[in-house]
Computed example of a mutant assay.
Amino acid sequence: MGLKFDAFGIFVNDLKVMTEFYRDILGVEIQWDGNGPHAEFLHEGIRFMMYERKELPGYLGTEVSYPNGINGTFELAIDLPEFSDVDIEFKRVVDSGATPVLYPRTEPWGMRSSFILDPEGNLIEIGSWGKGKNK
């Protein structure tokens, strides 16, 4: 049997703002009481966590660094069923306060794709490999 990832985590500056964005704007469920440096969302398939950056050096026993501006080191990808869903979801989250980066477009490899930023500059792709025909 091969390696299987159990979880992914994001190290954040403001845990409250970030959990509110992912809960209220993206709609990811969470049962977090607002206390402590760690929050875990209710997410099927893989655990999704956030941890306060200020706690990490003490935990690891060494200094760490973080990107500034748009974080181009990873993306979180949302896969929707149909191409038209990308346009609808992109508009909804931008109208709700997400920062747009790449407006929906159909890529040469056959995917409908768009990108937004979370409050700390992490890239979130809203895309679909569906059968839609939006251009």
Rank of each mutant, 00 (worst) to 15 (best):
R92F: 12
Y103D: 15
L102M: 15
D85R: 01
D118E: 08
G27M: 15
A98S: 15
D6F: 05
A7E: 12
W109T: 12
G58S: 05
F8T: 00
I116A: 04
F21V: 13
I70Y: 05
N71F: 06
L76I: 15
P119I: 01
L15H: 07
T19V: 15
S84V: 12
S113Q: 04
E52F: 09
P119K: 03
T73I: 13
E55N: 09
A98W: 13
S96P: 08
I10H: 04
P100T: 15
F48Q: 06
G2I: 10
S65H: 09
L56G: 04
M50F: 14
G61P: 09
D118K: 03
F115P: 08
H43K: 05
D95E: 14
L15T: 03
L42N: 09
A39W: 01
G27H: 11
Y66Q: 11
T106E: 14
K133D: 13
I126R: 05
N13M: 03
S84A: 11
R92C: 13
I88P: 01
E89G: 01
F5D: 02
F48T: 08
I126C: 06
G36M: 07
E20V: 12
V94G: 11
I124S: 09
P37R: 07
Y59V: 06
T73M: 13
F11K: 02
R47S: 12
E125I: 03
G121K: 04
R112G: 13
N122Q: 14
I126F: 04
K91C: 12
F11A: 12
M111I: 15
D79Y: 03
G34V: 00
P81I: 00
K4T: 14
Y22S: 09
I88C: 06
W32N: 02
F48R: 09
R47L: 08
K4I: 08
E63C: 08
A7Y: 14
V64D: 06
D79E: 14
V86A: 05
G72M: 08
E52A: 10
G110S: 05
V101Q: 15
S113V: 09
Y22F: 07
W109C: 11
G34M: 00
K16I: 13
H43R: 01
M111T: 13
D6A: 11
E55T: 12
K91S: 15
E125F: 02
F5P: 03
D33P: 00
D95K: 10
L123M: 07
G58I: 05
D87C: 07
N122Y: 09
E89H: 04
E52Q: 06
V86C: 00
W109Q: 02
G58W: 01
P81H: 07
E55P: 03
P100M: 11
L15A: 04
H43G: 00
G2A: 04
T99W: 03
R53G: 02
V12K: 00
V93W: 10
G2R: 04
M50P: 06
A7K: 07
S65N: 03
L42T: 11
Y51M: 05
F90A: 06
G45H: 02
E44Q: 13
T73P: 02
V94A: 10
F74V: 13
Y59C: 09
N68T: 15
R47G: 11
D85L: 03
M1C: 06
D85N: 13
V17Q: 12
R112I: 08
M18I: 12
Y59S: 08
G132F: 10
P67M: 09
G61H: 09
R23K: 14
G45E: 07
